Amino acid sequence: MTIKFNPNNIIIKLCMSGMNLESSGNIEDATAIFQKAWHEATDDYERFIAAYHLARQQISIIDKLKWMETSLKCAQNINDENVKSAYSTLFLNIAKCYEELRDSDNAKRNYELSNSYKGAPSDKGPFYHGTKADLQVGDLLTAGGTSNYKPELKMNHIYFTANVNGAGLAAALAKGEGRERVYIIEPTGEFENDPNLTDKKFPGNLTRSYRSQKPLRIIGEETEWRKQTTTERHEWHQKLAKNKGEIIN
């Protein structure tokens, strides 16, 4: 069974809080939050995420290597297809540490391991797309629409996810007055990890978010997902309003 990324998980929320402190320049408090996440983690999934963020904060290369290898070991203990999306990033960071330590053999070995985990996603779904549009089974969702987050931007890809709650969030934030809908879809062509989320806040593509230039065919409609409360929806709109980052289109 694939582990599902849960933004309401206490360890993930702690790490998000730490990253917010980090982005405001408060590195000392951010590190303390990541240490708290590590100590409160209850399983290898939570430890893998907390260790990764602790690794990023280390000044000493030896300490950075120790925490990055700890993160990798926890990820490997899980042996989950979704978590494997982080392997390439973890091996790459480990390789860079060995390179700085002038250990060329271990650096080369880890660079090779990093490259071996790159490539097209192997996720088999099921896949979902969240929207407020009233559509039918058999309809095609195509690229070229306006971004929900930057109205002036025409999207070159159509986005989807294997996380039904992620699709539900997209539906809640989508433009339009219709009811929130989550459609079950199948890609009609090749797809890739969404670069706007992959390796950004967390290693790999833990949210199982993808995009394609080819249409997505609607094959059904999902009715059960975690709905956003009015407060949560308001908080998400505030976050989006403050986000000045560029969308990789």
Results as ranks from 00 to 15, higher is better:
79 N>V: 03
70 T>Y: 13
142 T>M: 07
105 D>N: 15
108 K>G: 13
239 K>M: 11
112 E>W: 10
58 Q>P: 11
152 E>G: 01
146 T>R: 06
153 L>F: 06
72 L>D: 00
117 Y>M: 08
15 C>G: 13
60 S>K: 03
112 E>H: 10
106 N>C: 08
208 R>Y: 13
145 G>P: 03
224 E>D: 13
66 K>F: 14
71 S>Q: 11
236 W>V: 02
225 W>Q: 04
247 I>A: 03
125 G>D: 08
68 M>V: 09
73 K>H: 14
91 F>L: 04
232 E>W: 00
28 E>P: 02
116 S>I: 10
109 R>K: 15
216 L>Q: 00
237 H>R: 09
139 D>C: 00
170 A>F: 14
145 G>R: 02
243 N>M: 04
246 E>N: 05
231 T>Y: 08
143 A>Y: 06
151 P>V: 00
80 D>I: 05
235 E>M: 11
44 D>H: 05
167 A>F: 08
116 S>G: 09
213 Q>Y: 12
195 P>G: 05
38 W>V: 01
146 T>L: 03
154 K>W: 09
99 E>C: 07
23 S>Y: 12
29 D>V: 09
37 A>V: 00
71 S>D: 01
123 D>Q: 06
15 C>E: 14
101 L>V: 14
206 L>S: 07
211 R>L: 13
26 N>P: 04
199 D>P: 05
83 V>F: 15
150 K>M: 09
199 D>C: 07
95 A>E: 13
61 I>Q: 08
31 T>D: 10
208 R>E: 15
165 N>Q: 01
63 D>N: 10
45 Y>H: 04
243 N>W: 02
92 L>P: 00
233 R>P: 01
46 E>F: 03
84 K>D: 11
136 Q>L: 04
217 R>P: 11
178 G>I: 00
2 T>I: 14
202 F>W: 11
183 Y>G: 02
243 N>F: 09
133 A>E: 10
239 K>P: 05
92 L>I: 10
92 L>N: 12
2 T>P: 15
180 E>L: 06
243 N>Q: 07
247 I>Q: 08
11 I>E: 12
231 T>P: 06
16 M>H: 14
46 E>G: 00
136 Q>D: 09
64 K>E: 09
244 K>G: 01
93 N>A: 04
112 E>R: 10
233 R>G: 07
136 Q>M: 07
103 D>Y: 02
175 K>Y: 04
147 S>G: 02
190 E>H: 10
32 A>S: 12
71 S>F: 13
6 N>S: 13
144 G>D: 03
172 A>P: 01
8 N>A: 15
193 N>G: 05
214 K>T: 15
205 N>F: 10
111 Y>S: 04
146 T>D: 00
225 W>P: 01
122 S>D: 14
229 T>M: 03
28 E>G: 01
202 F>H: 04
131 T>N: 03
109 R>V: 14
39 H>A: 02
138 G>R: 05
13 K>V: 15
48 F>D: 01
155 M>E: 12
193 N>P: 13
139 D>P: 08
203 P>E: 07
244 K>C: 03
118 K>M: 14
162 A>Q: 03
65 L>A: 01
